[in-house]
Design a protein around this nucleic acid. Structure first.
Lengths: 191, 191
DNA sequence: AACACAGTGTTGTTTACTCAACAGTCAGTT
DNA sequence: AACTGACTGTTGAGTAAACAACACTGTGTT
């Protein structure tokens, strides 16, 4: 944890740079975004950008990582108990996406290397592994393929959900996704 | 015209201070607004405030003066021709208020010394004097009282209009105000 | 009257940002 | 192949803002 309390000016500079970058990312492809553009929108001198980040990609990485960290800490507030942990965690995750819809959607739809999507999948995968290991019964070889399959499917459903304006409430979607997963896992269920 | 192009940092600092002050002015009385509060909302060090303004009142004065200047330059774009200059100018003025409703309304409703209202009245009075002098016939003694009467009445109507959400379009209001004025001037009309 | 408390102006030092200038790379002209 | 134009990454000097500390005033409390 690098929790040194930042100077107001640093805080502000980084905030506007992120904001301006996200705005551009909504409008155009990552590869076509220049440092110069970011600085013009942010109204920050270009040399200042380089005092904080090496390039656009480093900035993107930091935005993604911070969002993932924020997501994790949001998820950790869930009190996971007994049964229904699965649905509950899924709901929490969906709730998080709905609170940060704008950012999440932009980053998930980013056409480049899909790094954010992969980061989200890691988080989701860890949740699955932690909470479902004792419910389902399979060896580790299979479990990796299976959880990947489940997570990637779920993430795509979530993307659709956001693209359609998140009509259904998080809870309903959580149940829906859980059902999809359970159907997929029907044959490997324990007991 | 002190049109030195300001350093980005100065521009930003003054912008946020003004913004934060206007926010406070919407919420509470001028006399209860402290420099400390302004700086906290603006996220600016208090010593920085004093590098730009001597106190809250100086800041308010500058906000008002800048808005008045902006208003004047907006009005000067009107091409005042022949007859109907009166209605046309009134319309321009109302258009301006509608574009800056938020600021204008806040400043006009400010319970303190009504300095903004007086500044607006001076502008309006000058317009009247310039454009109506040849239409109406009265000596200067009377004209001062009369134009003051007209302007103050008009400003109050404009305040009502804004308070009621500016339901009528500027043009309609301009005609309405013009009618009110003409009724008041009926007896001193020329020819 | 002594007290705490909150805002005021002001100061000196440190830090972050601006700005202008630079040489460098790369894609598209002509 | 030279030329243009746009973005890059870096530098150094100058300026603005942050921060922490100060003594001061006023206001209310006990």
């Amino acid at each position: 944890m690098t929790s040194e309390k930042l100077d107001r000016r640093k805080r502000y500079t980084r905030m506007v740079l992120k904001k301006s970058f996200m705005q551009l990312l909504k409008e155009k492809a990552l590869s076509s975004i220049t440092v110069k553009e970011i600085c013009e929108i942010a109204d920050v001198n270009r040399s200042t950008f380089y005092a904080h980040y090496t390039d656009q990609y480093a900035l993107l990485k930091q935005i993604e990582d911070e969002l993932i960290e924020d997501m994790k800490s949001y998820l950790s507030t869930a009190n996971l108990q007994k049964e229904d942990e699965a649905v509950h965690m899924a709901q929490k995750l969906l709730e998080y996406f709905s609170t940060k819809q704008d950012e999440c959607q932009t980053l998930l739809n980013e056409t480049g290397d899909s790094s954010f999507e992969r980061k989200v999948m890691v988080v989701a995968q860890n949740i699955i592994m932690k909470n479902w290991m004792d419910v389902y019964d399979f060896d580790n070889d299979i479990s990796n393929y299976l959880s990947t399959f489940i997570v990637s499917g779920s993430v795509q459903v979530i993307k659709m959900w956001m693209a359609n304006g998140m009509t259904q409430p998080p809870k309903e979607m959580a149940i829906l996704i859980n059902d999809l997963v359970n159907k997929g896992l029907y044959h490997v269920r324990k007991g």
